[in-house]
Nucleic acid binder design. Structure first.
Length: 457
RNA sequence: GUGGUUGUAGCUCAGCUGGUUAGAGCGCCGGAUUGUGGUUCCGGAGGUCGCCGGUUCGAAACCGGUCUUCCACCCCA
């Protein structure tokens, strides 16, 4: 045998059943997106490198897949950079395009480029693959699908409220009970940093704080010390480390800490507004939780940030995330255009639904009915009925060869086809079809119209 | 990018401190059964032991490298 073929690390093939199940999730998400007024767009799989580079932080740049220039890709390089292996200088010379890393930055590019054709506020959704040169692990792939809904051109916090409701609507339809929508606000983080006198260390501070539930209070404090945040500043953070209770309770204690910070209080107001709304129109299955430690790495967020955790007991990274970015289009030269959006991680939602056995049995790959092929005459008789079945919307097929019945039955069984239709000499003479229920083994000789009637439901 | 882990038949895995011709279960193909699958019985096909190199009289096993799998860190969906 030849060398076994394989696919690149972190990519996957999808079987017929898997594709159907992915479509099931996508169609629910898409339905709700449109129900909330989002319109679909698509953007290219790859962009010019300078569109993407520098938008996701240093870590992000490393994880962007770069595309090697076609032809003589070395012609723009300098000898000394090559011999010294000067990666930073070389990369932009040999690669001018890159695979998209997320859907938000390409969307910002789209908005700037098509601003004259867009009526703002612009609500768009986008369901496409993205690529990251990460090391794969549980629920992490190098090629995966994001489902994004964003709105640009409105500062209204009603958008945040609607996006939370949208999360809830999708999880409700998927029967995925018990997801937690964690919410925080960058302004609160900035306020805390301001109050403790560490404004210049905002990023280090939030990254460390983000790890609280993972590594604990002591290690977080240590990491902050290591990053040069003063010990007495860290002491002031104690209320943040020990927050407890519900949304309103946490809000209260954080409020007292942020009294002297204008930006912090603005963050508080925003979160209060959102919570008031959600209280008035309660969520159906998800739970909104204020999480002061939520930071999120993408450095374009400026206001509310979201992250969705799978139900308790499921070990999986976040299955969704998003937030408000006041100036995303600014990097492409379009000022004063606020945006807010969320993303669903299709691949991770799939894994969660699979683990919880939440895919409806009706989501299947194969046909509804298989016609057994006994030979030329019988096949001709069946072919007429296969057409009628199909015209009635019943997915059907005629076995292509007059193979042994055992083989045809095995085929039906293996493909989990629920019904087999048998028509031999007896049936043809009587103008009937025999319907076999594969689950029970039961058979009935029936008028073909009756079968169509029954299977059309 | 850092640390660990995995790789033997289509799949899941045995294979002793290195020893002759590498096994099982499941699956696949055929038959028992020319109009009946998912349960039975019989037979058959299928392997450069991830790849490259080294140690040895001898390597699936030991060593080095490389690729791959999974996990953790980092980061994230």
């Amino acid at each position: 045998m030849a060398q076994k073929p394989s696919i690149p690390k972190g990519t996957r093939d999808f079987s017929p059943l898997e594709v159907q199940r992915r479509r099931y999730i996508m169609s629910i998400i898409q339905t709700h997106f449109e129900n909330y007024g989002f319109m679909p767009i698509e953007t290219p799989s790859f962009e010019n490198s300078d569109t993407l580079m520098g938008k996701y932080g240093e870590e992000g740049d490393r994880l962007i897949f770069k595309i090697l220039n076609s032809g003589d890709y070395l012609k723009k390089t300098r000898e000394e950079d090559l011999t010294q292996g000067n990666e930073a200088a070389l990369t932009p010379k040999i690669s001018e395009k890159a695979l998209r890393y997320d859907l938000t930055v390409p969307f910002a590019r789209y908005v700037v480029q098509h601003q004259n054709d867009i009526a703002f506020p612009f609500k768009r959704y986008q369901i496409q693959n993205v690529w990251r040169a990460d090391r794969p692990q549980k629920g992490r792939f190098r090629e995966f699908t994001q489902c994004d809904a964003d709105v640009v051109g409105s500062n209204s916090l009603l958008q945040e409220v609607e996006l939370i409701q949208l999360y809830d609507a999708v999880f409700t339809s998927l029967q995925l009970d018990g997801c937690t929508i964690k919410i925080n606000n960058r302004k609160i983080l900035a306020g805390i940093a301001e109050v403790i006198g560490a404004e210049d260390k905002l990023i280090d501070f939030t990254v460390a704080l983000d790890k609280l539930d993972k590594i604990g209070k002591e290690k977080v404090q240590q990491e902050m010390l290591d990053k040069g945040i003063a010990g007495e500043a860290i002491e002031k953070l104690d209320p943040v480390f020990t927050l407890s209770g519900g949304y309103a309770e946490k809000m209260k204690s954080i409020k007292s800490l942020l009294n002297d910070s204008a930006v912090g209080m603005r963050g508080i107001e925003e979160l209060e507004f959102i919570n008031d709304f959600i209280q008035r129109i309660p969520l159906k299955t998800a739970q909104l939780d204020l999480d002061i430690t939520l930071a999120r790495g993408l450095n374009y967020y400026t206001g509310c940030i979201f992250e969705v955790a799978a139900p308790e007991g499921i070990s999986m990274g976040s299955i969704g995330g998003g937030g408000r970015y006041d100036d995303l289009t600014g990097i492409f030269g379009m000022k004063d255009m606020s945006g807010v959006g969320i993303s669903f991680g299709l691949d991770r939602i799939y894994l969660v639904l699979e683990q919880l056995n939440l895919f409806p049995p009706s989501v299947r790959a194969g046909v509804e009915a298989l016609f057994v092929n006994f030979g030329a005459n019988e096949a001709a008789y069946c072919a007429g009925w296969v057409s009628r079945f199909r015209e009635s919307g019943i997915k059907s097929e005629l076995y292509p060869d007059a193979a042994k019945m055992k083989k045809q039955m095995t085929y039906a069984d293996r493909n989990e086809i629920p019904y087999v239709i048998i028509a031999g000499e007896n049936e043809i003479n009587a103008g009937k079809l025999t319907l076999k229920h594969m689950a029970t083994g039961e058979e009935e000789k029936l008028d073909p119209q009756d079968i169509i009637q029954r299977l059309s439901n």
